[in-house]
Nucleic acid binder design. Structure first.
Lengths: 328, 328
DNA sequence: ACGATTTGCGGGAACGTTCCCGCAAATAAA
DNA sequence: TTTATTTGCGGGAACGTTCCCGCAAATCGT
């Protein structure tokens, strides 16, 4: 990097002012006359000035970066991707960079971030445990359980149970009595996966219905999914398919329509984690829109608050941006 | 961030040495006796020392961060995700952070990175154009065309044409004569999408076969995909389905098997961009494994080389890690 | 009109690192 | 031994910011 960029001193020299004045004008602090402030801002733009983050970080003793941990799964990638972009967006607003955490944590990395967002952490996830042990401010999206769980300063959750119950009640209102849940069979299941299953079964029991859960492995092949659907419909005689993982509802649509069944008439399909265009907005599928982008942004804002008040007690916050879309 | 970590000076004080000695011992430079070097390293570990990147960046005038640009598409996410983790891995080895670039580039961000990797950039992609205009060292994975293309210092490509031809020849060897390509119909197609289509049609012509291309929109719903497959098989009478986008082959498998067709017997399916577990390793689908993780790592290494030799002429490099898996 | 307060700005230090140089002691060359 | 050369280490400056303080001028209160 031979290229050298304009510094605060260049601006100061250009205007015959001191670096202090320029710094506080740009930073919004200090007591500067409005005319000078404008002038400084203007020449800063003209010179293409952009503040040197390294210098600032060094001085104010903050890294300016937050880490993002995404669980090592094959499913729901679109959700995580959008979530990541939401984090990026929120981070930019609060002047953070976002760095992606690889599966393995090299111990140094932990101390190169001001805080971490872990989305859908598996119970006892070693990377999260290590971060917590290191005292890194951590926001868990979905609950984290495992070593150091008492040190999670922030937890963000959507109203999964309420939304899911709404969607399920809608099935009932449409006269469906034989529902089947396609659940993710992950040996280390996230709180979402666990809650989802419980919400479903308890809802069934409350309503006098028989819960039918069909496991689909996390790394399930298309055939496995087809097998599960077939089983649910043929053996289980299901008149409504409730899909846990993102994309499963769309897959089900293919399979079912391929068999000549009409969605909305012969049976209903609902997605508990609607994929952007495929499921959300699909007129034949009821779906919960987790609004991943806004979700990620909210997580970042929570983390930022925690970083700025490190000694505040742990906080649990609800994300209000998720919504449910019901067919006709 | 109230937490304050051990500095190089703490180590120096502890051992009665100077910061210079400690720094060069840790950095591997300078002339230090082996005994002292060991001693320093040891106490550094003991004190949990980790070098302050801000201070180093400030001093050596490098940011220590590379940006990653992922195209705003819904498909092939698993590929991009794995690619991203490959980048992260390679970056860690060369002591970089990786920051995700959101869709929109705030102009400041461009100068907070030492370089950028753009994977499958669309022609004229504004973000890439802006980066190139700003003189940021840029590696394009797949060719970039558009404003500033002459300033792309590094291009990395896999042997798509060769691998695809191998897979196609294999179809021929199995007696398939009526192949159909499921192509991505993107208004702003990446070089990969364009090349793939050309490779296919030229191969057909060379072998006296009639090329059949079925467009599938980038944001295609499952129904659209089913429609394309149905069209190819029923109307086109295809005995082999060549799938461009990741995941399409697996989807096709569902549809075809749902219709009672046997893969490998009634017809063949090949994937030009095999998804990790679903297609790669699927005994019934021939697929090209783009080895996204290694691909990302290679891209990072190329970028690092370019950052260190900014004045070197533009370089085009082949990625040798991709491979093709043929059914029986 | 005189002291008290506010306003506008600048000087200097500090953050933690690396790198250039200098200098003594040890070793090699003569 | 005397003169070069190498080895091992330390002093000090610099990177670009921010922040604490200080100080003159302007404004205020009475």
């Amino acid at each position: 990097m031979a290229r050298t960029r304009a510094t605060i001193m260049d601006i100061a020299r250009e205007l015959g002012l001191s670096k202090t004045t320029v710094s506080s004008a740009l930073g919004g602090s200090g007591r500067i006359s409005d005319e000078k402030r404008e002038l400084i801002q203007e020449t800063a733009d003209r010179l293409g000035y952009v503040t040197n983050r390294a210098a600032r970080s060094l001085r104010v003793n903050r890294i300016g970066t937050i880490g993002l941990h995404i669980p090592p799964v094959a499913r729901s990638l679109a959700f995580y991707m959008d979530f990541a972009f939401g984090v990026t967006e929120g981070a930019a607003a609060a002047d953070y960079d976002v760095t992606l955490f690889a599966r393995e944590l090299t111990p140094r990395m932990a101390f190169q971030v001001d805080g971490v967002i872990a989305i859908d952490p598996a119970p006892g996830e070693p990377l999260v445990a290590a971060l917590l042990a290191g005292g890194i401010p951590t926001v868990s999206v979905g609950r984290y359980s495992g070593p150091g769980e008492e040190r999670v300063q922030g937890t963000l959750e959507a109203h999964h149970a309420e939304l899911q119950t709404q969607a399920l009640n809608h099935l009932l209102a449409r006269g469906r009595r034989r529902t089947a849940l396609l659940a993710i069979d992950d040996e280390i299941a996230s709180s979402w996966a666990v809650d989802t299953r419980r919400t479903y079964t308890e809802w069934c029991i409350r309503n006098g219905l028989e819960p039918q859960v069909f496991e689909v492995g996390a790394g399930a092949s298309p055939r496995d999914l087809v097998a599960a659907i077939t089983q649910a419909v043929d053996l289980g005689g299901a008149d409504a398919l409730v899909c846990g993982a993102q994309g499963q509802a769309a897959q089900s649509q293919i399979v079912l329509e391929g068999r000549g069944l009409a969605l909305g008439a012969d049976l209903d399909v609902v997605s508990f984690a609607g994929a952007a265009a495929l499921e959300t907005g699909n007129p034949l599928i009821s779906s919960i829109d987790l609004a991943p982008r806004a979700y990620g942004k909210a997580a970042t804002e929570l983390l930022d608050a925690i970083i700025q008040h490190p000694d505040a007690p742990p906080v649990h916050r609800w994300f209000e941006g998720a919504s449910v879309h019901l067919v006709r």
